[in-house]
Amino acid sequence: MEKQATREAYGKALVELGKVHDNIVVLDADLSKSTKTADFAREFPDRFINAGIAEQDMIGMASGLAAAGKVVFASSFAMFAVGRAFEQVRNSVAYAHLDVKVCATHAGITVGEDGGSHQSVEDIALMRSVPDMRVIVPADGVSTRKAVFKLYETEGPAYLRLGRPSVPVIYDENVDFEVGKGIELRNGKDATLIACGIMVDKALQAAKILEKNGINVAVVDMHTIKPIDKELIVKKARETGAILTLEEHSIIGGLGSAVCEVVAENYLVPVLRLGINDIFGQSGKPDELMEYYGLSVDHIVQKVHELLKKK
């Protein structure tokens, strides 16, 4: 199976865009080799700005550049782009409605060995709570590239959450990727798995295992957490009567919360949230951590059984 890290796809997409549009400026904060903005820096050194280890200043500068007419992509690790610079993103970027795309890599526990200080499990929650902010968590390299292009085309602030490890390629180039529209990857009548990021592939794997036991679950790639695809959630709630959400993020404030809000206000069905259970991460290999924190395919299968009992 072909694999690619979403951050790799991000770096390549920036170069593609840079070749066509000369109003694109890319910023980084001393992590360009890891975030892959180094690809853009090599091709367009005059349109790349390294802020040094100063994420708050990076976002502040991004705002000034955007106010002067540039389309800005600013990158660091999720912990620092969102965490350290949160208030700059809130007040300088979003409050001012500027064309800054905060594209953060190394989100979640799959950061691995660097440990809990670097594993952002709160960034979706933080970004989702900011008015005017779109929040996108792509599942693979192909959809990451599409997301980067769409973000360029649609003016205004956005948060793109990317990962460190290589992940299976799910889509082909023809995928219809629309910001705010979830993608139905698989039909099923018993329950719906609504996932984002690296959990989409795991949801598909779990669905196959469940099928062997006569359980048919639908799988949705909810790549846009905000604006959330309300219609699709209500439709799946109606069709399948139960929902499991899956994210490499705290169960508080992220995709799970967003889905619960829609379900609670529109069409009540049982929902379970699979994610990081309100605890910090730690050092370890990415796969070990996914197992330890309950995000493996086996955990999903178990959780679906638990969910079906609630129907």
Binding site: E113, D114, G115, S117, S283, K285
Partner: peptide, 13 residues
Amino acid sequence: LRKLGSPLQGHPD
């Protein structure tokens, strides 16, 4: 160092 469960985290804890 840096292994799952170790007190020697990737960054000091």
